[in-house]
Every structure is written in C-alpha cells, then in structure tokens.
Design a protein around this nucleic acid. Structure first.
Lengths: 211, 211
DNA sequence: TTTTTTATACCCATTTACAGGTATTTATGA
DNA sequence: TCATAAATACCTGTAAATGGGTATAAAAAA
C-alpha cells in the first residue's frame, strides 16, 4: 500500500469536462488533483517541475497533437501514467497512443464507474481500456489491417495536386517535370493504395486525412 | 421576476460532461436540473410529460441526429429553449441548428462563465452564442458561402459509385442504363460542383460528407 | 395548367488517364 | 560498400473521361 496520495493531472480543452472530472475524482481519498490544463504547452511546463502519477489526457487539443504530446510527456516524466481520453474510436488511433507511451485509452462516453476503474488500474501500473475500446481492439474493422500507406515526399506532393483537380500535364509544368514522370508517380500512387483510378484514390486519401 | 425555478435538462452521451454540467449548475438557485439523458429517445419520452424550460443539447448523439432532435423537441414542446452544445464549428451547422429551433449554440470549449451567461440569456428568451461561435458567424470562411449543392437521387447514387472507382460503363451496366446516360449524370455532377474532373469532385464531396 | 426539374439517351471531337513495361541517376540504409 | 528506395524519364496501346451540344418523356412544382 502506498502511503502518499496519487497525484493526478487533467489536460482537456473543454472546461466542462475538466469540471466533470474534478467533481468525479474529488471524493477519492487516494487521489489528489494537482492541476488542470486546457492546452498541452502549459502541462509540459508544469510536469517539468512537478511529480504527476497519472494524467488524463484529451488527445485533441488546440495546440499540440495528442501523439506528440504523449511522447513529450513520457520523455520529460517517464514514470507518469497517461490515460488517453478521446472521441476518436479508430483502432489505428488507439494503437498509436499505446505505441507512444499511453497506459490506457477511454472514449469520452465512458461511464463514471468505468472511468474510476481505469484510473485505479493505471495507478497500479496496468494498461486499461474502457469496454467500448476493448470491443474495437478485439473486433478490428475491415479497413483496420490495411497498413498505413507510406508515401514519398514527391508522391504526397503530387497526390495533393491531383486532388486539386490538376491534370498530369499541368502538374508536370508546375513542378518542372516531364509529363511522363508525373504519370509514373500517379501510377505508384494507384499501386500503393491498391486502387484503379483517381476517384477511389482521392476517396481513400481523403478518409485517411492525407489531403 | 419569475417565482418558480427554471427547469433544465441535459442531453449528452458523455457522462463526464453531464457530471460537469450538473456540478456547474447545481449551485444556481434559479435553476433546477430535472433530468439528464445520454440519448435523444429517452429525452423525447421525458419531455412529453414534463415541463422543461431549457435543454442543453449535445448535437452528436448516438441514436439521433442533432438537427432532427431539435425539430422533434420544438414540435413536442415549443416553449422549451434549446441550447446546442457541440464540437462542430462549421458555420453551416450553427445555422442549421438555429433554423431548426435552437436558441443558441455553444462550442464545448466554452468557459464556465460563458456557459452560465448563455443559459441565463436563453432563460430570458434570447438567442445566444459563445464568443467563439460569434466569431465564426461574423467571419464566414471562404467556403461558407458556397451554397450546398443540391443533388438528385440518381446523381447521389452515381456519385457514390464513382467514388468506389467504378467506370462509367460499369455503372451503366449495374444500373441498367445507357453509358451515355451515366455520362450525362457525371457531367451534371461536375457542373453542379463547379469542378473539372473526378479528382476534385470526390475531394469536395468527401469534405461535404456526401459519400 | 403551365413551367421546371429529373432522368433518360445520343453524337462528336479531344484530352486525359491507365496498364504494363524498361531504364538511369541519386540518395539512403544496412 | 552493397543493396534498396526514390525520383527521374521514356514507350505503346487502349480505355476512359470530358466538353459542348441536342432531345424527349415523365414527374414535380408553381
């Protein structure tokens, strides 16, 4: 048994959510809330000088991307357990957070009981998920095993020009390339995405936020 | 001055948000929270038998679309003021909610003070917005005046088949149409979206959630 | 009832895209 | 240093898409 209280911080840009979390946790005698932050930068400064055992981290913050913040926190304070709080229910996002040091992942519609259970697990050093998240992990959707397509810089560049409706010739002129070179890049894009024309290409790229 | 308390309900599928809102509002002596709901259906049943002056409504619920729910509520209980709570910061969404009977629109990152101010305004029958929302309304982005493209049923059907990478001929075969007919529909799609090829078409359709 | 929209279909000329190759130079990693 | 990946470029033939028209019947709206 630990004698000291567990120090916990909240990082979420929604004041109402902070209010809710504080209210839920304030009656737990083993937990002490040591700070609430509405952006990542402030929390990073804070953690450099303070001990935080657990942080409840909203992964969609205005100033910094959740994955990057997760890694930053682990670099500054490796012993801090990070519990990701998020609306994103894509398997890939869950996996990325875990890969980058999170100890758990909760969807925002998690019940209060489950939330507390997960925090307690995180305090004990375990990795935890809310039940909806477990469901997602164990029942991967169809698209979930299609690994992320790795595009070169040039390919990304051409992909976005294609998405703007530019033709091969126009792109070639703009980039001072041969039309044939641009055709090759397009061909590689179609191959990498395993699609057979631009319509499908742009749809998938758009769904994967590559535009 | 009213003698009775203002009755207020909360509809949000995030338990933590409900907790936060309850906690923020419980000390207001003029406000009485008469119910909290995590889906639209339950609230619709509730409001048929109860008087609710103000409802804080999350517009992204699992069971029903926010706009439809807004209209439902106004139909069942026209005197209830609806304050929309949302993460969606698109001008078009804000306008749609107001058109469908909402008395205000708050982004979820609204501060507690502002939230209370808006609830009080709504109680008094005014239409209110959080400052971030006012900003959005008064500074329309570039795309905001491009009015929503109105597609016919057939056009939508063909658009989604095109997005699946099917060729004109394939689509014609599947729908038992002449290839020339499908070509005409495609042409109309390009014209309506004011674009010159499928790449641009699919990108815009995808951004507008038409796929 | 008249007008407009929707869905259908056709024609022609031209441009663009796609499939399936090969090949060279330059970076980048192991 | 050796192998691999990236970026470049070329060739040929075919398939598909686009632009700019016209036209008609049916359905929906005014």
């Amino acid at each position: 048994m630990l004698l000291h209280k567990v120090t916990l911080a909240i990082v979420d840009d929604h004041p109402v959510v902070i209010e809710g979390l504080q209210n839920i946790l304030k009656n737990h005698d083993r937990i002490e809330i040591v700070g609430s932050f509405i952006n990542g930068k402030d929390f990073i400064s804070f953690i450099e000088n303070s001990k935080v055992d657990v942080v409840l981290l909203d992964i969609s913050l205005p100033d910094i991307n959740g994955i990057a913040l997760c890694r930053e926190i682990k670099k500054s304070s490796p012993k801090t357990s990070i519990l990701a709080l998020s609306n994103h229910d894509e398997r890939s996002m869950i996996m990325k957070m875990i890969e980058n040091g999170a100890s758990g992942y909760l969807l925002k519609n998690t019940s209060v009981d489950e939330l507390i259970r997960c925090i307690e697990e995180a305090v004990n050093g375990n990795i935890t998920f809310s039940s909806a998240v477990k469901e997602i992990i164990s029942n991967p959707g169809l698209g979930d095993f299609r690994e992320a397509v790795r595009l070169t810089k040039r390919e990304k560049e051409i992909l976005s020009l294609v998405a703007l409706g530019k033709t091969t010739q126009t792109i070639a002129d703009e980039l001072f390339l041969s039309k044939l070179t641009v055709e090759t890049h397009r061909k590689h894009l179609l191959q990498k995405f395993k699609v057979k024309n631009v319509a499908e290409l742009i749809k998938i790229a758009s769904q994967d936020n590559l535009l």
